[in-house]
Amino acid sequence: MPVEIPKDSWPGSVNTVTLGATGDQGGSRTSTVTIGGEQSLPFMHFENPTPHRPVIAMEVAAARPADWSAVLLEAWGSTLDDPAVWARACEDAGADLIVLQFGLKGSDDGPVSAEFAVEVVKEVMDSTGLPLVVLGPGQAEIDNSILVPIADATKGERIVLGLCEEGNYRTIVAAAMANDHLVLGKTPMDVNLAKQLNILMTDMGLPLDRIVMDPTTGALGYGIEYGYSVMERLRLAALQGDAMTQLPMLVTPGVETWKTKESKVGAGIPDEWGEWAERGVNWETLTAVALIEAGADVVVLRHPQSLVRVRAAIAELTASETA
């Protein structure tokens, strides 16, 4: 029985965005990462090939993280003490990107400062050739105080700066525009809010191929379904031709899952939850893969074992087969 396979033909596509710049391109990265470009829903190879596979970013904290799960502390060991060493280890483990996350603390437990921030960024860039995403602690004034000097000190590197939110987008967008960087816009789990921030940022003159968006997703068990559906809707809108949704998406299963009780806590939990470390990795990988199938272009992870598994899943999903 011949059956005609329904193929969607979409008028729109996701923007292609390149993160990082090599020596030839005015930066110092040994490789760049290109994401986006999708013309179909994720992995519908019978319609169109996946132009750029989803990539894995590993999160590196600028100062040793105080509140990370013991499972993660054990997995990384002493590398956590030095962001440069840590970033190098991520690269060796097969990461595509490094997300350098600043907190409120700088060196010696003092408050984070511009000097500290610039220095950490430079050290990390010296130790790894991967492109970088640099995130402030998420408080507008402090973010501006470190991200602007970082942007100035790394002109031309095509770093992704974040987080840009509706209340503080102007400064970061201006810093990115002045120094050939990219920005990461983050909005709280809502299609319209995501579009609105993208409109505001592009209204300032920032080209669309220099924006990545984080539509925010919850962890498995903690609202993953909302983020999942927001991502599916954004991607559908992008393919339907809505320019303000045609941005590649970055999501953070690592941050979200490792703060859940399931991943963070090992003692005093029900037997039905099973073995701690494996549960934590499952929590992170299930979240990541579900979101990749909803359209994520970048997933930011924490556990090295998750990196291995999600990488294998991405390889399997992008392997072009005729179904």
Binding site: D190, V191, N192, L193, K195, Q196, I199, D242
Partner: peptide, 15 residues
Amino acid sequence: YEAFTSAMFLPHTDL
């Protein structure tokens, strides 16, 4: 609610 947040913009999220 969707229509509302979409309209919480000048003039509208969908120009």
